[in-house]
């Protein structure tokens, strides 16, 4: 019997089973990634967000929880205009963080 709705799959993240090796590499290259306080200023100014749901805040959030696939699909929408780095209250060079993510993570990431 199909009622047209079901139970959403669990969104719980088991940090024990997440491989954060790449995130550690990102952290070495960009020590500022832990400075992010998830204020969302970057997402508010993002021009690409309208088209691809890109949000630096979400990308960092996802990467820290091992949800690399979601993060990569967002990063692919980035236009590198750099507005996010101008509005960041923590002074994170988000533009370079994105380039480092593009370097460290690959298309094939799950």
């Amino acid at each position: 019997m199909d009622f047209g709705f079901g139970i959403a799959p669990s969104s719980a993240v088991n940090l024990d089973s997440v491989d954060l090796e790449k995130f550690e590499r990102l952290h070495t290259a960009e020590p500022d990634v832990y400075k992010c306080m998830a204020c969302g200023s970057c997402s508010a100014t993002c021009i690409a967000g309208r088209f691809s749901g890109m949000s630096v805040r979400k990308v960092l959030h996802c990467l820290q929880r091992g949800k690399e696939k979601e993060a990569v699909s967002m990063v692919k929408g980035c236009m590198l205009c750099g507005k996010c780095s101008m509005v960041c209250p923590r002074g994170i060079n988000t533009r370079h963080v994105i380039l480092s993510i593009c370097r460290i993570y690959g298309e094939e990431t799950k």
Binding site: S52, G77, Y105
Partner: peptide, 14 residues
């Protein structure tokens, strides 16, 4: 000449 693992894709932009 830098190599990046992720290359942007804007084909979804309507």
């Amino acid at each position: 000449i830098r190599k990046y693992g992720i290359s942007p894709d804007y084909s979804s932009v309507n």
